[in-house]
Design a protein around this nucleic acid. Structure first.
Lengths: 221, 221, 221, 221
DNA sequence: CATGAATGAGCATTCATTCAT
DNA sequence: AATGAATGAATGCTCATTCAT
């Protein structure tokens, strides 16, 4: 976890704990009311600390936002590797990654929307941190995609562009949730996405392999 | 297009002109600095009017935002029908619509990003206006998609979900422009998108039809 | 009617008419919403003229207030003499004057309250005008009082102080109307006042005279 | 006395002190310049605090006005009972109450005028508070009056109406001070009032009793 | 380490007044 | 004479940040 945000407190464990407290409060408030409508007093109250305390763990209100956004991106960076860790089959890994992504987005739906709303509110240097982190996460998806292509299971598409399609598909569940939730639930959304991307990406060989996986999965309990 | 935002000035033509002036200034400022960091004085100065003047054409700062967002959505609602108006072939209409959408997004890239950032800053009732307008625009894309399906050129997919994929694809050009612009230009982006969606959606019959269109287009000057 | 308020318009009849229009609108608005809460645009609208027009008949917003307050005091100066004009008996004139005062206050209740609220909002020189006018009105009451004393009908009291008691009694009907209206109606209020002041002021001779008048009045239709 | 105005600061003693500071500054400014002409910056500067500070002890500018008006009414509610506390004779209590009322009005002359000017500037609910408080104060005067009547010392008059006469008499010292101060000083004003109300209210028995009291007082050092 | 009272710059909004038409 | 659009100074209120305790 890399934030070069400097704290004035030395006890590292305490810093961790306090920041977690602050971020937890801020995520909720920023998500619901937006960054600008949330006051530091709001954050302090919800975090159960005094307003002054926050400034011992953070330099700025913008720093709080940075911490919040990094915490969202961190969930991605933890959940996706976890979801594919046991798997070896490229196609299985691919679908598992997408599925994990969608599920994290669903769990942190409001924070995801927040990221779209508020990243621009950060000063340039801190925004760079976020972008770098996003590229990193995309890298994990891209890697899965590449493996599928290398294995001849998917077409030779522009990897980074398609990665954006996949990532955007996941994000949309949060961004357009106000409408999508009336059309389907998360599982259906993911299923429709699988179908769509399968059509778009799989080679004939990929299709056969897919059928095999599917069959195996269907026969499972 | 009609915004029920009420002006205190009676001369309708003047209202149109002044609002256009204000919106033009606001789009630029909101896009660059964000809604909250932009002061009404900023808007007034950039629009070349006094601060007080604005309040004769708008009730609120939020009203300015509403006007700005509606102006973006209005571009969609004008450009897309214009792009497909002469065409009769369902597939041609479909690609033309997508292409037009991408091009409007490109022209109003910053305003599109602004829409994602700031719609939540509106009070509920005004946000509804925006949502309704978005659904309307989506309807135009969905109609093209349905026609292709009805003609047997595309698979029987969930129309609204796929519409969101298409729309999101266009929006992404603005939202992720910071990265995408390093990977390709707009034409390439659109071309890649066509390829991807063609794969995902076309039936065998659709593919043959597509080839024919494509051939014709290739032989053109 | 003496306001040295200067108009920019020469046609004297028009000036009268316009000012009456403006004052009528202002009395109502100032009375209900107060001077500061009423905008010149409000006054213009209610008067059915444009905002700019007002400034051709008045130099200031404060000027409008002055005109309004003078109009109230003018009603006093007209109604009271009218009420006592036919009468010769000092006691009858006295009661008639008080009664008339109360009735004018009742008719212009809100304007009377306005005078108490807003006279201090005037710049010193214009406030002097008002004070002078008030003293003038008081003079009419004081004269009636003096006549009664001179005729031996009332005690040798401090005339000006008692005049203030009388005037204040009339004003209170407006100032405390929110409470008094629940205790009695105007006629009862006046009757109670007569009784009270009679006790306080009449000499034995005055009392006998009063009984005679009363008796005559009671036997009247 | 309790104003349900809520402070954001918890230390109750501090709240008391700060509010007193603010009210003291506001009374002076509001009295001289009026409520609307006084800015919160004015109040802050005169109170020797920052503008923001005030809003931790008050919700509104109107709240400051409410606090100011309540502080005036509170003086009445404290001074009058104090003035009559040692006395048992109904007539002595009555005159002591009136005298105390006049003296409080004299001490807080400008604030009294302010009350007449500005009560209407309060929103309805807060104005109700003021009215209730006024009725309470009147109740103290009315009680003295009733006791005199019950003891056969005064006539059977309409208690509440006469109470208003008495209260108004006290208030007039402030409201018409610009003129009255040229006619007499406070003691003379009170003495003239006593004479007037004695004539108006005392029964023969009351008159004898009054003479006795008076005699005793005259023989006192 | 923690508190929370205090600061004061910053901003949306209003409105008396002007002036071109 | 009359209009009403335009002005811009003025003001109530907020809130990130500090600092004495």
């Amino acid at each position: 976890m890399t934030h070069d945000v400097k704290a004035q407190v030395t006890d590292e464990a305490l810093v961790q704990r306090r920041r977690a407290q602050i971020v937890a409060a801020a995520v909720e408030l920023f998500s619901h009311q937006g960054f600008y409508r949330t006051t530091m007093q709001d954050v302090a109250k919800k975090a159960g600390v005094s307003a002054g305390l926050i400034y011992q763990y953070v330099t700025d209100k913008e720093d709080v936002l940075l911490l919040v956004l990094l915490s969202v991106l961190d969930s991605y960076k933890q959940e996706i590797p976890a979801a594919i860790s046991g798997l070896t089959d490229p196609l299985e890994r691919f679908w598992a990654a997408i599925s994990a992504y969608c599920r994290v987005v669903d769990q942190r739906r409001e924070a995801t929307v927040l990221a779209y709303r508020s990243t621009k509110s950060l000063p340039d240097d801190r925004r760079e941190l976020i972008k770098r982190s996003e590229i990193e996460t995309n890298g994990m998806i891209a890697a899965c995609l590449k493996d599928c292509i290398k294995a001849g299971l998917m077409r030779e598409v522009n990897v980074e562009l398609v990665t954006y399609q996949l990532v955007t598909f996941a994000h949309s569940w949060a961004l357009k949730h106000w409408r999508l939730k009336e059309l389907c639930d998360l599982d259906q959304y993911v299923a429709e996405g699988f179908d769509f991307f399968a059509q778009a990406l799989l080679t004939p060989k990929g299709r056969r392999h897919q059928a095999k996986i599917q069959g195996a999965a269907d026969n499972a309990p």
